[in-house]
Design a protein around this nucleic acid. Structure first.
Lengths: 196, 196
DNA sequence: TTTTATTTTCTATAGTTGTAGAGAATACGG
DNA sequence: CCGTATTCTCTACAACTATAGAAAATAAAA
């Protein structure tokens, strides 16, 4: 009989508003009031959907991870070996405005995760999955002869992962408007190193 | 005639206290009161040495960068080429408790730098310097025949820098007590890749 | 001991934050 | 048009923050 709201969709709306605030103004400005305003509500309206701010932030961060993982799945679908590895990395690298914004989200998340085991867990779980995926692609590429280095796949995957993480820092702290950071060249260079 | 305090040394003391708070409790706990307490003073005693909290934090972050750079200079002194490059990277990698603590400092710094051009500048200036140093070592190594890859030195230095930055994230978010993250193996593997 | 410039403590203030909850507004079935 | 379950607004509050500045404590010279 009353107005009916899809709670799950509302939560996504609120998380998107949070995302925009953090990307535009930084996590310090992501107060409950500011988020509510951005979403078009009054401050108290968030309560029924996220009992505490921490719930909201944790959900928001998890959502960014999920979205990235879905994008990765879409881009690498049907690919294997070196091609899949390249697509994977290209999708994670902050090469356009949208993914630079994601870097501006994930860095505050890392900072919070330092003193919050639950959040650190979210990060580690995703990274474990990424490492496994990359090792898989490396093994395929090795079988296809595209990877011949004596360095083992676990080390290579670790290098690549840290390169991807470091690229988030580099991009997020680059001067406004600077698009070319050589990240694509670094990726191609790394893939070249694997075949020798 | 009155008690005399070395202002510069006092500033270092306060910055060290700040450093310890951030490493132990996180930057959210680094309030003026908490820092003063850690340094053994009452809250208002910081004022004459750092007019604002932002002054204190900016100075603290700059100090960590300087300390790292001094350590690097000490370790690479008298070295060149691949050996110097290795020493450089080993000194930056978070391989022991002290340098993992530095990772716990630098990540909050990065987060603040996202929305603070002045702090971003501090980061970029150091990174530019690091890149130049690494390119120099790579050129020397190439001349000595220890680097033979077709990938150019600028890309290699960029890869290595991002690997070092990413390693800070990996180490800072690793489960407490886990020391072995394979970072040294990754570095050795990368240096191996250069000679082929 | 007295003086005095400096250092430090202590209290106060204005602002911001997350959270709580009463009440108004809403929209839909009857 | 009416009743009602839900949604949202609004105000309030307690906690915490950086900062300011008056007052007290300090230590060395005279």
């Amino acid at each position: 009989m009353p107005k009916i709201v899809d709670h799950d969709q509302r939560r996504i709306e609120l998380v998107d508003a949070t995302w925009r605030i953090i990307a535009r103004l930084g996590i310090e400005s992501a107060t409950m009031r500011e988020i509510a305003l951005e979403a078009g509500f009054a401050n108290g309206a968030l309560k029924p959907y996220f009992p505490t701010k921490d719930d909201l932030l944790t959900f928001a961060f998890g959502h960014v991870f999920n979205r990235t993982n879905e994008r990765i799945a879409g881009v690498t679908a049907g690919q294997a070996g070196l091609a899949a590895l390249r697509s994977f990395c290209v999708e994670v690298l902050p090469l356009d405005e949208e993914r630079i914004n994601e870097a501006r989200i994930v860095i505050p998340f890392w900072q919070k995760a330092i003193n919050d085991p639950g959040k650190a867990r979210i990060h580690r779980d995703s990274m474990e999955q990424w490492l496994a995926t990359m090792r898989q692609y490396l093994a395929e590429a090795r079988q296809a002869g595209a990877v011949t280095t004596a360095v083992d796949d676990a080390a290579l995957a670790g290098q690549l992962l840290n390169l991807l993480l470091g690229a988030q820092i580099t991009a997020a702290l680059a001067p406004e408007g600077q698009v070319e950071l050589g990240l694509n060249g670094q990726l191609e260079g790394f893939l070249t190193l694997l075949a020798c």
